[in-house]
């Protein structure tokens, strides 16, 4: 069984986002780029499955749509333990374009389980995973917080309102994962970093697709009112303010 994990390259989640003049694009100076947190957890779970001989998972590939400048992020994924990588050489302009590029490369190589994070921490679109599954015409399971392999077939835990359910869909399929899929992201070892240098990255050129959306610009959220402090010995005052001023209780 072969797994591919789609990874996105995002600003480190502690970055204070700034925009260039005119708010048309973000100021990338000084930004540390990292693997999108959900993709990192997906990769960790995929590697746990591969490292368990009983699962039947033989290889874990990472797939990324982006320019050559995002190779360090791909190498990081290889250092963490992925066997090889696919990169579609493009600027990932919108979700539809990105998903179609990834779907084309993935279908050329053929995988049993395609794993995507539920969203990327930069654009928060929650769209690429679902779109890939529709481009490929295969089943998808979303809100996945658990993935195991039983008798050679994937078993998913899907979060639902107020609970969770276990379910099966046939392979090939797309799993769109969220928190819970792995406990903590796996960290690259020194040996992993050395090994990553020589692991294969297959580069694909783009297929012809339209972009359906574009960004007109960004806005910073309006700054909130200054905090009103309440005497710690008089919490009743807080309740009074919440009731009569904010009117939320």
């Amino acid at each position: 069984m072969k797994i591919v994990v789609c990874i996105s390259n995002v600003p480190d989640t502690t970055t204070r986002i700034k925009f260039l003049e005119g708010n048309a694009s973000i100021d990338t100076s000084g930004i540390q780029w990292v693997i999108n947190p959900w993709d990192e957890l997906s990769l960790t779970r995929a590697l746990e499955l591969r490292d368990d001989p009983a699962s039947g998972v033989k290889t874990v590939t990472v797939a990324h749509a982006g320019p050559a400048s995002s190779e360090p992020t791909i190498r990081k994924a290889l250092a963490i333990g992925a066997d090889d990588a696919i990169r579609v050489n493009c600027e990932p302009a919108d979700a539809f374009f990105t998903a179609s590029q990834l779907a084309a490369a993935i279908s050329k190589e053929g995988f049993d389980i395609i794993i995507c994070g539920i969203e990327s921490s930069d654009f928060n679109g929650s769209a690429v995973g679902g779109m890939i599954s529709e481009f490929l015409g295969i089943p998808s399971v979303s809100s996945v917080s658990g993935l195991s392999i039983e008798n050679g077939a994937p078993v998913f835990t899907r979060e639902i309102d107020g609970g969770r359910e276990s379910l099966k869909v046939p392979v090939p399929c797309v799993a769109i994962v969220q928190k819970g899929i792995a406990k903590e992201p796996r960290i690259a070892s020194m040996r992993g970093i050395m090994a990553a240098r020589t692991k294969p990255v297959r580069v694909y050129e783009t297929v012809d697709t339209d972009c359906l959306t574009e960004i007109a610009g960004f806005e910073k959220p309006a700054p909130g009112a200054a905090c009103k402090y309440i005497d710690p010995d008089d919490p009743a005052r807080l309740i009074e303010l919440l009731q009569n001023e904010a009117r939320v209780i």
């Binding site: 979700a95 928060n124 769209a127 679902g130 639902i160 309102d161 769109i176 959306t213």
Partner: peptide, 24 residues
């Protein structure tokens, strides 16, 4: 809705209809 169900379905519908999506 941009809830779990919306996130599961909207992207697939987007590809079927070739419709651009703005989520959230």
């Amino acid at each position: 809705s941009n809830n779990m169900t919306g996130k599961a379905l909207a992207p697939r519908v987007s590809v079927r209809l070739k419709a651009g999506i703005a989520s959230g």
